[in-house]
Design a protein around this nucleic acid. Structure first.
Length: 495
RNA sequence: CGGGGUGUAGCUCAGUUUGGUAGAGCGCUUGGUUCGGGACCAAGAGGCCGCAGGUUCAAGUCCUGUCACUCCGACCA
C-alpha cells in the first residue's frame, strides 16, 4: 500500500520534472544526435531558414552579421598584404571552362548550366561559376604583358554554385558565399611564397578570431585541388571528432598559364608563363564555429566575431528607473562594444535562454537592487560564471571578460583537439580509433595512393594533410603496406 | 546518385490502420497582472492537410506520380 502510493507520487514527480526539462531544453543534446543538434542550432539561433530552392538556405540577419564580421577581418588582412578586390561575371562559357583539363574534370559533375536567355536558346551554354579560375585566367591573359605588371594580387567576394547531392546549412549548400583570391607572379618561388603567406593568414584568422586551433599542412596528390600543382590546408577538429577543412591555398605553378596563354616579357627579354595561386574561405567557417564552440544550450560565439558582444537584460523593468538606467548603459557601452538592449516584454528568464541560444558572449543584468548599489551583474556564456561589478569600472571589466572568453574558447578547443588526436602504427588500432573515438589520427604513409585509397575504403577516413613542423619518425613504416614511410599524415573522417 | 525517415496552423506534432464537420500544445494579436533562469489570467486571429493526377456520392485518410526537407553511404569547400 505504502509502496504503491510512493510509486504514484514518485512517478508524478518524474513526469513533472521531465515536462519541465522539455520546456527548457529547446535543442537536441549533442551527445544524443550531433547532426540534429547542429540543425537545431542553425534554426533556433536564427542563423538560417530553409528556402524553397533546393539545397539553398536563407541566411538571416544574425547569421549574416557573423559572416560580415568574418569578411571585415579577412578583407582587412588581404588588403594589408597588398590585395585588391575585383568582381568577375557569374557565368562561364563552356569553352572557357574547358580550357584546363584537370580543372574541368574536377568540376564538371557539379556545375549548373544556363541554356536559355529569355526564350532563346544560347549558341553556347554557360555554367554558373563553381569557382572563377578560368575567368581570372582569361582576364590576366589580357592585362599581363610585362614583368612590370606582376604580381597581380586580386581577390573577389562572391557566391558560387556547386550542384551538390546532399546539403547541410553552411557545411555544404548548392550556393555558398566565399572569397577567392587569384594571384599571378613572375616565378614559381614567388607563387609559393604567396600560397604559404595566405595559408598563414587563414591560420591566424582561425586562431585569433574564430578561436579555433588549426593544423597547417599540405594535401596529398589525391586530395589536392583540380588543376593545382600543390594544395595547402588548415584542418580543424569538430566536437564530434570529425575534421573540417577550414580554408585552402593552392599553388598552380604555370599550369593554368599554359592553358590560357598568360605570358609576360621578362627583364631578360624572354617570353615566360606566369605562376599563379588561388586561395579561398567560405561560409563554412560559420559551421566550424558552431561545431567547435557550441554546447547543449546553443551557439557559443567568440567575442571577436559575435554580432552582439553584450546583451543588456533589464530586470523588473516596469519599476521606476530601471529602463532609464539600461538605456544609459547601452549608450555608454555602445561606444566600445557591440551592444544590444532587449527591452521587449518577454520575461528575463526567456531572454537569458534566448541569448544563450544565440551564443552572445556576455550578458548584463540590471535591476532595482543593482541600481541601488551602483552595480550590475555580468554573466559569461562560456563558463556561466556570474559576477557583480560596479558600474564605475564597467568598461574595463567587460573588455577583460571578453578577452578572457576569447582565450578560454581557444584553449578549450585546443584541449578538445588534443584529447581527440591519436597516433598509431597499427592498422587495426587505426580502425578501432576511427570507430570508437573519432578524431585526428597521426599515422605514417608510404606515399602510394593505393594505400590512401585502402584506408578510405576500410575506415571511411581520408588523409587530411601532411603537417608542417612535424616530421616523420626515422624508420617508421606505412600504416597499410608496412613499407618504408615517406610522410607522417593526419587522417580523419571529414565534413 | 543509392538506402531509410518526414511533409497537416508560424513551430512541434495528433488525426491516416477502418474515407464522412480540421485538432492539441507552444508561438502570434489585444487588454490586464508579473519580472534576478524559458510567468499568469481573459478574449481573439490563424489551415487548398507539400504539389499534380486518379478512385469515390464523399479523400488529410486509398492509388499513381512528383517536389522538398532530413538521416546514413558514394562526390565535394
Amino acid at each position: 500500500m505504502f509502496y504503491h502510493i510512493f510509486n504514484l507520487v514518485f512517478e508524478g514527480i518524474v513526469d513533472m520534472s521531465m515536462e519541465n526539462k522539455k520546456l527548457v531544453e529547446a535543442i537536441t543534446s549533442m551527445d544524443e544526435d550531433f547532426a540534429q543538434w547542429y540543425t537545431d542550432i542553425v534554426k533556433k539561433a536564427e542563423l538560417i531558414d530553409y528556402s524553397q530552392v533546393r539545397g539553398c538556405m536563407v541566411i538571416r540577419p544574425y547569421g549574416y552579421a557573423i559572416w560580415e564580421n568574418m569578411q571585415k577581418v579577412l578583407d582587412g588582412m588581404f588588403k594589408e598584404t597588398g590585395h585588391e578586390n575585383v568582381y568577375m561575371p557569374m557565368f562561364i562559357p563552356e569553352s572557357l571552362l574547358q580550357k584546363e583539363k584537370d580543372h574541368v574534370e574536377g568540376f564538371a559533375p557539379e556545375v549548373a548550366w544556363v541554356t536559355h536567355g529569355g526564350s532563346e536558346k544560347l549558341a553556347e551554354r554557360m555554367c554558373v561559376r563553381p569557382t572563377s579560375e578560368t575567368l581570372f585566367c582569361e582576364h590576366y591573359s589580357h592585362i599581363i604583358q610585362s614583368y612590370r605588371d606582376l604580381p597581380k594580387l586580386y581577390n573577389q567576394w562572391c557566391s558560387v554554385v556547386r550542384w551538390e547531392k546532399t546539403t547541410r546549412p553552411f557545411l555544404r549548400t548548392t550556393e555558398f558565399l566565399w572569397q577567392e583570391g587569384h594571384t599571378a607572379h613572375a616565378t614559381f618561388e614567388e607563387a609559393q611564397e604567396e600560397t604559404i603567406r595566405m595559408l598563414n593568414i587563414y591560420a591566424r584568422f582561425y586562431e585569433e578570431y574564430l578561436a579555433i586551433p588549426v593544423i597547417k599542412g599540405q594535401k596529398t596528390e589525391r586530395e589536392k585541388f583540380a588543376g593545382a600543382q600543390s594544395t595547402y590546408t588548415i584542418e580543424c577538429l569538430m566536437h564530434d571528432g570529425k575534421a573540417l577543412q577550414g580554408a585552402t591555398s593552392h599553388n598552380f605553378g604555370d599550369g593554368f598559364a599554359r592553358a590560357f596563354n598568360i605570358t609576360y616579357l621578362d627583364k631578360d627579354n624572354q617570353l615566360k608563363y606566369v605562376n599563379q595561386t588561388s586561395w579561398g574561405a567560405t561560409t563554412r567557417m560559420i559551421g566550424a564555429v558552431i561545431m567547435v564552440h557550441g554546447d547543449n544550450d546553443g551557439l557559443v560565439l567568440p567575442p571577436k566575431i559575435a554580432p552582439i558582444e553584450l546583451v543588456i537584460v533589464p530586470i523588473a523593468m516596469q519599476k521606476e528607473g530601471v529602463l532609464d538606467k539600461a538605456y544609459e548603459l547601452k549608450e555608454k557601452l555602445s561606444k566600445t562594444f557591440r551592444v544590444k538592449l532587449d527591452d521587449s516584454d518577454k520575461s528575463p528568464g526567456w531572454k537569458f535562454s534566448e541569448y544563450e541560444m544565440k551564443g552572445v558572449p556576455l550578458r548584463l543584468e540590471i535591476g532595482p537592487k543593482d541600481i541601488a548599489d551602483n552595480k550590475c551583474v555580468l554573466v559569461r556564456r562560456d563558463t556561466r560564471e556570474k559576477v557583480s561589478v560596479s558600474l564605475d569600472n564597467l568598461q574595463d571589466e567587460i573588455a577583460k571578460l571578453l578577452d578572457d572568453i576569447q582565450k578560454n574558447l581557444y584553449n578549450k578547443a585546443l584541449k578538445l583537439r588534443e584529447e581527440k588526436t591519436f597516433e598509431t602504427d597499427n592498422f587495426e588500432d587505426f580502425k578501432n580509433i576511427i570507430e570508437k573515438s573519432p578524431g585526428f589520427i597521426k599515422a605514417h604513409w608510404c606515399g602510394d595512393e593505393k594505400c590512401e585509397e585502402k584506408v578510405k575504403e576500410e575506415t571511411g577516413a581520408t588523409s587530411r594533410c601532411i603537417p608542417f613542423g612535424e616530421s616523420k619518425r626515422d624508420g617508421a613504416k606505412c600504416i597499410v603496406c608496412k613499407k618504408e614511410a615517406k610522410e607522417l599524415l593526419y587522417w580523419g573522417k571529414a565534413y
